[in-house]
Amino acid sequence: MSIAELARPPIRAAKHGEKSPASIIFLFAMWAALAFAVLCLAVLLVDAFVDGATRLDSNLFTRYSSQVLPERAGARAAILGSAWVIATTALMAIPLGVAAGVYLEEFADKKSRLNRLIEINISNLAAVPAIVYGMLTAGFALAVGLERRVVLSGAIALALLILPVIIIATRESLRAVPDEIRQGSLALGATQLQTVWRQSLPAAIPGIATGSILALSRALGEAAPLLLLGGLVVVTYDPDGLMSGYTTLPIQIYNWASQPQEAFHSVASAAIIVMLALLLVMNALAVIIRNRYQNRW
């Protein structure tokens, strides 16, 4: 090291940064915006709990919707319809999303332009508004002669909605598996398919399960694509198959909240509480799976 380099003063951090006035103002504005958003959410939740607490009774779970007697209206058909649609969505989206994620991460040529184009499009599709998937499903149903107001059509729209999210979650979970595990398996004579099936994929299952549950939680709260498909707002029967008419909790809440009678607003608030409870259960399950089964490499 030369004498000039030894005489050079040490590098110091710049005086600007988090302590500069601009940074302090930006930080204050960011926290103020966050606090305002949380306050608005808290007010809405408290209002929903206050209005809906009186309607959290057996009628809400055992009776069907009514346009005449809001005091006796229930969400039985909406709860069962949501269960049918979400279960069908999971059966269609999770296997396809996991398979696509495994292929893109483990088998696809990373240097191929086609594969890179597919990866970019998947990332873009994850941010597409939900109603676009409803329009796409409506066009598909018209092309193949499928009735739009049935469970299968709604499940297709929601499966398309969450498919990019599941693919991305699968790829990120596979990337978290150390490459030494793959190399060790291949060194012992296993094929690439055997390595993925017996080593990489089992190690990535906690992350895949977490991402899939969170994606299904998003699908549970969607109403726009189902309304575009002509989802029914008043159903007085239980869905009994993929070709059955249906309604879901978001659609039923939308219908009740748009009514002028205050009694409908109360039952809508009660349905909101039920849907929030379901979402909290699903998110808590995702957190439990992640914390209990995720490997620390």
Rank of each mutant, 00 (worst) to 15 (best):
G184C: 05
L214T: 04
I79W: 06
A35K: 08
V98W: 01
I94W: 06
A268T: 08
A268K: 10
Y237H: 13
Q294R: 10
S23G: 09
A33S: 15
V132G: 13
E105M: 04
S266W: 05
W256I: 01
D57M: 05
I122S: 02
T89F: 08
Y246C: 04
L285R: 00
F107P: 00
G81H: 05
A4H: 13
L91A: 13
A22W: 13
V177Q: 10
Y254M: 08
K110A: 14
L104H: 06
N59W: 00
W297R: 10
A257W: 02
A93Y: 04
Y237T: 11
A130P: 01
Q67W: 07
W84D: 03
F36R: 06
A141F: 05
L142H: 00
A32I: 11
V287T: 07
W84T: 09
D57L: 06
T62A: 14
A159E: 05
S112K: 00
P9G: 11
T137E: 06
P202V: 02
A159S: 15
M1E: 02
A286F: 05
T88A: 15
L163W: 04
A100M: 15
S217W: 01
T170H: 05
F26N: 11
V287P: 00
R72M: 12
G221S: 08
G134W: 07
V233D: 05
V38C: 12
I86W: 08
R171D: 05
A141L: 03
V43C: 07
R113F: 14
P202R: 02
L188A: 09
T195M: 14
I120L: 10
A286P: 04
A286Q: 06
L249K: 03
A176E: 13
P239W: 10
E172H: 14
R292E: 02
T62L: 15
V165P: 00
A190W: 09
R175L: 11
A127G: 12
Q294K: 09
L285F: 06
L152I: 13
N295F: 06
A270P: 04
P9Q: 07
I131W: 01
A141G: 02
L280R: 07
R218W: 02
I120N: 11
L249V: 03
A155R: 03
V151A: 09
R290K: 11
A159F: 05
G81P: 10
S185Q: 07
M30Q: 08
Q194A: 14
L226T: 02
S23R: 15
M275I: 12
D47E: 15
A100K: 00
L285K: 00
Q259N: 02
S173K: 03
P95N: 04
Y246K: 06
R55G: 02
F140R: 03
R198T: 11
A37W: 08
L34G: 13
V267D: 01
A257P: 01
A257I: 03
R175A: 09
P95K: 08
E147F: 00
A219L: 07
H265D: 03
G101H: 01
T210A: 14
F264Y: 15
L214R: 06
A268I: 07
G101E: 07
G52C: 11
